[in-house]
Structures are given as structure tokens and as C-alpha cells.
Design a protein around this nucleic acid. Structure first.
Length: 111
DNA sequence: ACTGTGACACTGG
DNA sequence: ACCAGTGCCACAG
């Protein structure tokens, strides 16, 4: 059974996309991570943008726990305010406009 | 079905 | 703070 319908599909972008989702869901409360870090954890070095795509597409993810490099929030307009607000509510501390990665950056297992 | 173009909640120098 | 490079995706012709 199993069907390998598509010739070269399967473990293409879709499989990795699922992995990214899994990683983001794995973010515990009060912890944050960066796009690039998640991409790497999912086995996609340099796919920070794809992480973004997933965050926007898939809902039910702690999107507010995902920030840019250095803990900078890259969200547009109100989303940024909400993200900041939510993170703060989870006990995350900020340093100016950036998350204090020193204290809250989550460490993924391996890679 | 294939190719071209544009856009993006990025990263690093 | 600004610029350039990069990877994958979505849409149109």
C-alpha cells in the first residue's frame, strides 16, 4: 500500500514544513526562539522565511514565541504589540524593543 | 506542464 | 541604521 504517487515529492518541502510546526509547538511557555534557529532545528539551514510562511499559514502555534535574530520582533504593526504583550504575560523580559534572549532563548535538542 | 516575476513576521556584514 | 544575499512559495501567462 503506501503510495508514492508523486515522483519526487514526498520528502520535499512538505515534510520539512511539518517538522517546523512540530518544533514551534515544542516551544515551552516563557521561552522564545528565532526563525533561523527553528529552521535549523527542523533541518533546514537558512529557511527562516519558510518558518514565517508556516507561522502565517498554520494557526494554533505559539507564533508569539518566535522572534527575529537577536530577539527582535519583526512583525508588522499591531501583531508586534500583541506579541510583545503576550510574551510579557508569559514572564518574558524585554530589553528595550528586544526580547532578552540571554534568559529566554530556547535551546533545541541537537542542531 | 513549465517558466518568469514578485513578495517576505530573515540574516549577516 | 542601511544594504545585499538568499530560499521557498504563490500567481500569472
Amino acid at each position: 500500500m503506501k503510495k508514492k504517487s508523486s515522483a519526487k515529492n514526498g520528502s520535499g518541502t512538505e515534510g520539512k514544513r511539518v517538522r517546523i510546526v512540530h518544533c514551534i509547538r515544542s516551544l515551552p511557555k516563557g521561552r522564545v526562539s528565532t526563525y533561523g534557529a527553528i529552521a535549523r532545528a527542523a533541518g533546514w539551514a537558512g529557511a527562516a522565511r519558510q518558518v514565517v510562511r508556516v507561522l502565517r499559514q498554520v494557526d494554533g502555534l505559539p507564533w508569539h514565541r518566535v522572534v527575529g535574530a537577536g530577539g527582535a520582533i519583526k512583525c508588522p504593526g499591531e501583531s508586534a504589540a500583541e506579541q510583545r504583550f503576550r510574551l510579557r504575560m508569559e514572564g518574558v523580559t524585554f530589553r528595550g524593543m528586544r526580547v532578552n534572549m540571554k534568559l529566554h532563548e530556547h535551546k533545541f535538542p541537537r542542531r
